[in-house]
Amino acid sequence: MSGEVTLTIDGREITVREGEKLLWAALDNGIYIPHLCADRKEEKPDAACRLCFVEIEGRPQPVTACSEPVAAGMVVNTRSERVDRLAGTAFELLLSSHRLDCGKCAANRSCALQKIARERKFKLKVTRLRTLDRNLPVDDSSPVVTYDPNKCVLCGHCVRACRRQGGGVLGFAGRGFERRVTTFGGASLAAAGCSGCGACAAACPVGALTAKNVRLPNAGAKR
């Protein structure tokens, strides 16, 4: 399975590794598709954020690019009325439960949500929907990172980063609207055996986990 396949994305012919997922094929060739949860290092996609919809010719419904393997001769469009509408709704839903505080946020200007809004001309404001602030306490216990769960979009990058560091301190708990990234028993980071490597803050795309003003052993890993 080491062959290559050629497909068309937005009218451009692209040749990529066989088995590659559409999302990476597009991004690697400079074609933008909004995304939050996708992780190149994972074999099976989460397909959780519901932002990376694209149209594939011959398919009745838009599909998520992160979960779709490329195929020879496939014709893909990253923009259509349907796709933009689905991504727009998913984006506004995420914003409705993300505490908007860009001016004071450490992730200002590097935030993935800001990038998506800029690329797709989405408003960085909740207009149609109700605001769903969960009003959870901010965890400031760790000497190296601050965790504001009210900004978390549940993309899971921090959980995977922590696991790869051998920590396994962070994980998902609860379900439904109560699903959150937390530690065993909901303890503060300081009490949960966090080693302070900072990989989670480096991985967080939206400023929910941010590095304090200290030098991080893992800094620079930002996506």
Binding site: G171, G174, R175, F184
Partner: peptide, 12 residues
């Protein structure tokens, strides 16, 4: 497995 893995299941 990590205690967090168990906690994920228990709270789910």
């Amino acid at each position: 497995i990590t205690p967090m893995d168990v906690y994920s299941v228990v709270t789910f």
